[in-house]
Amino acid sequence: MKILGIITVIITGFLLLQAERDFPDWGDAASPASDNRLSQHYITETINETRVSNMVTAVLADYRGYDTMFETVVIFTAGIAIIGILRVYGPSTKLEHPEPTLDTEKPDLIIETTCRLLIPIIQLFALYVIAHGHYSPGGGFQGGVIFGAAFILLALARDLQTAQKWVPENRVLNLAAIGIFIYAGHGVLSLIFGENFLDYSILTKVLPGDAIDARYHSMLGVEIGVAFTVTAIMFSIYSNLASNGKMEEGI
């Protein structure tokens, strides 16, 4: 079996080297991927068509917004899958230990104080990253991860129960679903107004400004949707993994 594996790896490596022979030069401005109507269109027209200065966001959230919607769904799926596989419902072991052992210990002063200082800043920074997706590097995925990390830090510094007070299990799922609904809602709304799915320009009927502004604002809207889902699922995955699916005591 091992030899078979080595042979497969060598063949694959050989193939990849073969492919490399015909690659365009590194950083070649005339390579097909950078010098054709597709990329040129994105580079020159994005600002006119969507008024978004970060063209990566425009490609992600508008030109290929359908892909991004399903990337968000992938994250949602991962969350549901982990709940499906790991989560153990059943009689709580709490009945046997009326007082969780973790709570009897006083939290460490240094950790406590650091978290108190850090968590609000982390959350604020997450909101900044989400809101500035179309000016600067950032967006829903990145911001959502940072926001989720704030809750994970809380769970690590105190214990899972404390973090669960802020985001109980059901609320996590609700948040994740709301995120998807916000994203898909933009699409469904465009359908209702009589345009194709995810055609934000028609949303000018409910958003301020003209059709191009509607694209601009919708992109912020869908980024917020992505952020909701990512935040919730990040924390859900952490709490399921850390507590073996029992949701009682974390690590």
Partner: peptide, 13 residues
């Protein structure tokens, strides 16, 4: 051919 987001291919999906 159904254009998602109203973008004509190959710019959109």
């Amino acid at each position: 051919r159904y254009k998602l987001g109203g973008w004509s291919p190959p710019f959109g999906i």
